[in-house]
Amino acid sequence: MIGTVLALGGGGFSMSDDGSSAIDDHLLDLTGQDVPKVCFVPTASGDDNGYARRFEEAFSGRATTSVLSLFCHEPWGYTDPQMLLEQDVVYVGGGSTANLLDVWRRHGLPDLLTRAAAQGTVLAGISAGMNCWFEASSTDSFGPLAPLDDGLGLLPGSACPHYLGEADRRAAYLGWVASGALPGGYAVDEYAAVRFVDGVAVEAVAERPGRPAYRVERDGDVATETPLEVRSLPGA
C-alpha cells in the first residue's frame, strides 16, 4: 500500500462525551492543512444519523466536513463515492466490519480508497474502521467474536481493536493468531492508535495514559505480544 492510515483501537470523537479528542487533533495535523477536508463514512453503523451528526459537531469550525451515506440517509442523500478522491481525510466509523466490506465492494470503494491514499488522503477509522484496512481481523459482526479473513488488505496481517477494553478480545485474538486462524498483526487498545505509512507501522499514540498497542506474531503454537512504544499526545 502507498499512503497513510491511522488505525484507532477506540477513542476519537466516537468515545468522547463532548466530542473532543487528542487523536482526532493528531489526525487533522497529519494532513498539513489549516482547514482540511474530512469525510466521515458511517457504513458500518448502517449510516446512523446520530453518529454522523456527532462527527459534524466534533469537527465543526476546524475542518470542511462531509458524510458519504451509501444508504442514502437524509439530510446527506446519496453522493457519488468519487468524492473520496477530493478529501484530505477519510474517517471510517465503527459498527459491523462484515457489512461495511460487503457494501463498500458493491459501491467500488476499495479501488477509490486505494487511489485516494496514493494521492495523499489520510485514511483513518475506529473499530470496524480500523479492521477494514487489514487483510483480516477480530470482529463481532456475527454476534460472538470471530475471525474475519476478507479485509481490504491495504495493510498486511490482522487487526484487533478494543484490545483490553472489551472482555475476551485479547484471549480470542491471541488464540486465533496462535492457531493460524488469523495471521499476525496489530492489537490496539481503546484511546490508542497506530499510524502506518506505505504499509509499515511508524508510530503508536494514545490520548489517555496507559493505553497500549502491540505487534502480535505466531511463534510455533503460541502468539507473542511485542509492545509498541506509545507516544502520549498533548493532553493525555
Rank of each mutant, 00 (worst) to 15 (best):
G93R: 03
G50R: 11
R62H: 11
D111G: 13
W104N: 11
E86N: 14
S66G: 15
Y78K: 04
L145I: 12
S60A: 15
A178L: 05
L174S: 04
H26V: 03
D111H: 13
V38I: 10
D149R: 15
G129N: 11
L100M: 13
Q119P: 01
V205A: 12
P144E: 13
L85C: 12
R169H: 15
P36I: 06
A236F: 03
L112K: 11
I126K: 00
L8S: 03
L233A: 10
S69E: 03
G77M: 11
T31I: 05
V222I: 14
A187C: 09
E56Y: 04
R218D: 04
V67R: 02
D198Q: 05
P234E: 09
H73T: 07
N49I: 14
P227C: 06
L174E: 12
A181D: 15
G165Q: 10
S16V: 09
N49H: 12
D47M: 03
G210P: 08
V200L: 08
P234R: 06
M1L: 12
A193T: 06
G143V: 02
D25G: 06
G151T: 03
L152C: 08
G151M: 03
C39D: 00
R208H: 10
L182N: 10
V177N: 02
A136I: 01
V205G: 12
Y78S: 12
P42I: 07
D29I: 01
G185V: 09
G94V: 02
P183F: 10
W176T: 01
L8K: 05
L182W: 10
R106A: 13
G153L: 11
V177Q: 04
A187V: 06
E86P: 01
D18R: 02
R169N: 14
V197E: 15
G157H: 09
V5W: 12
R53G: 00
T139I: 08
T43E: 01
E190F: 00
D189L: 01
G19S: 04
V90F: 04
T226C: 00
R215H: 15
L84M: 10
E56K: 04
G11I: 07
V38Y: 08
S14F: 14
D34M: 06
L233H: 09
N131Y: 02
D80T: 06
G175Y: 03
T224L: 15
L6A: 13
A213E: 06
E207C: 08
S69Q: 04
D219I: 09
L100E: 05
S179V: 03
M130H: 09
S60F: 11
A159I: 04
G10N: 00
E135D: 14
L27W: 13
A223F: 09
V197F: 00
A213K: 07
T4P: 03
H107S: 04
A44D: 05
V177F: 03
P212K: 14
F196Q: 05
R115D: 14
P161Y: 05
D150P: 00
R195T: 15
A204V: 07
C132P: 00
F55D: 02
D48K: 00
Q82W: 00
S20F: 06
L101Q: 11
A172G: 07
G220T: 04
F59W: 08
T139N: 07
S138E: 13
V205M: 12
A98V: 13
Q119M: 10
E57A: 15
G157E: 09
L101N: 10
F71K: 08
Y163N: 02
S21Q: 11
F59V: 08
C160Q: 10
G210W: 09
